Structures are given as structure tokens and as C-alpha cells.
Simulated assay, not measured.
Amino acid sequence: MSDKLNLDKLDYQIIDEMINSAEISYADLGKKLFVSGGTIHVRIKKMQEMGIVTGSRLTINIKTLGYDVISFVGIYLQKSSMYEDVAKELEKIPQIVRLNYTTGTYSMFAEIVCRDIQQLKQVLHDKLQYIKGIERTETLISLEESFSRNVQVLEDEE
């Protein structure tokens, strides 16, 4: 795929560094990769235009903000053709932070972040269950997140 995208090793190094520290300045990143800050700027702009880089995110510790419950909900649809309509309705629920259309047991798989069990109950009982097209759900509560990471785009050279 990198041939189609016309990315070289420097592009992948930039992506790798920015994934680990998005707040690094182009000048500092250039020094680290032995190129100019202008080169970094041009490369980032090129990757934005290609749709590879779509923005930057602030990573927060949700627990310190009082969000103590992370759950995963497998969603069974009445018909798979209802996916788009159901996804639009699920997107309106702010506690749903990720949604995937899946193969296997569930039609959809959602990650939900809540302040407490009571809020999770409200999301599941008062919101999810009333969405047209959802047949039933199965909820799994996360006891601990062992790690979270981005995909490694710069493969180790052997």
C-alpha cells in the first residue's frame, strides 16, 4: 500500500514520532530525524492532503475525570441492512466512544465510557434499547485496561 501512497521511510518515521508525541514541534522533529523543520511541514501537509493524517488528539486520563466504567456492548441487529440507520442513532449517544460493524457473533460492537454504573444503566436501558433495529445487546464490563496503543507503522528492520 505504501507504493500507492508514495510514502518513504521518512514519512513513516514522521508518523511514528507524531503518534508517540503529537505536540512535538516540526523543528524539534526535524532535528530528531536529521531534516529541516520545513521538510517536516511539507511532509505532514502532503499526508494531510492524502488523508493519512486527519488531525491530532489530546489523550486524557478518563479515570481522573471521574469516568470509572468502560464497557463493550455487542449489538445484534434485526437485519444487517439496518446498520447505517442504527449507527446514526448510536452516534447521538455521547457515551459511545467507538463503534464497529463486525463479523461473527455481533452485528456491531460499541465501546461505552460512563461515570458510573448508574449512567451505564441509563445508556443501556433508556437509550440503546429504544433504537429501532436493535434486536438485543450483550454487555461486557472492563475490569482493567492493560494497555492501549496505536498500530506500529514503522516496522522494525531486520
Rank of each mutant, 00 (worst) to 15 (best):
S71M: 09
Y67I: 05
L120E: 00
A110M: 00
V113G: 00
V53Y: 01
L77T: 05
T102W: 09
I117V: 13
E84T: 13
V86M: 00
D85H: 11
D85M: 11
K79C: 06
G55L: 01
S107V: 02
V97P: 01
Q119R: 07
D68V: 07
I93Q: 05
D116N: 13
Y76N: 11
N61D: 15
Q95C: 09
P94T: 08
I93R: 01
E91N: 14
I60S: 05
K79G: 04
R115Q: 09
D85S: 13
Q118F: 11
L65N: 06
L90I: 09
I75K: 02
Y67N: 03
V53M: 08
E89Q: 10
V86A: 01
V123R: 00
Y67G: 04
Y76Q: 12
Q118H: 11
A87R: 12
P94I: 03
D85V: 08
T102D: 06
E84H: 13
Q119E: 15
S80E: 12
G104Y: 07
E89S: 08
Y67L: 08
E89I: 00
I96Q: 01
I60H: 08
Q122P: 04
S81D: 08
I134A: 02
I134L: 05
L77G: 04
A87V: 11
G104T: 07
E91R: 15
G74K: 03
L90Q: 06
N100W: 15
E89K: 10
G55V: 00
T102S: 13
T59M: 14
D126R: 09
I96K: 01
R57A: 15
G133F: 02
I117P: 05
T137V: 12
K79I: 06
D116H: 06
F109Y: 15
M82A: 12
M108S: 03
V69Q: 02
L120N: 05
Q129M: 12
L120Q: 02
Q129K: 13
L124C: 07
N100L: 15
V53F: 09
T59R: 14
E84N: 14
Y106G: 01
L128E: 04
G133C: 06
V69W: 02
V123W: 05
S80H: 12
I96Y: 00
I117T: 11
L128P: 02
K88C: 07
R98F: 15
C114D: 04
H125V: 14
K88W: 08
T59S: 14
E111T: 15
V97C: 10
T54D: 10
G133D: 05
G66I: 06
S56D: 11
D68L: 14
E91Y: 14
S107G: 12
K121I: 01
T102R: 10
L77C: 07
D126A: 07
E84Q: 14
F109E: 03
V97F: 08
K63I: 15
D68C: 09
S81F: 03
N100K: 15
D126I: 05
E89Y: 01
M82Y: 14
V123Y: 03
S71L: 10
V86G: 03
K79P: 04
T54K: 15
V69D: 01
V73Y: 06
L99C: 10
K63S: 14
K92H: 06
V69E: 05
K127R: 11
R57G: 10
Y67P: 01
K132H: 11
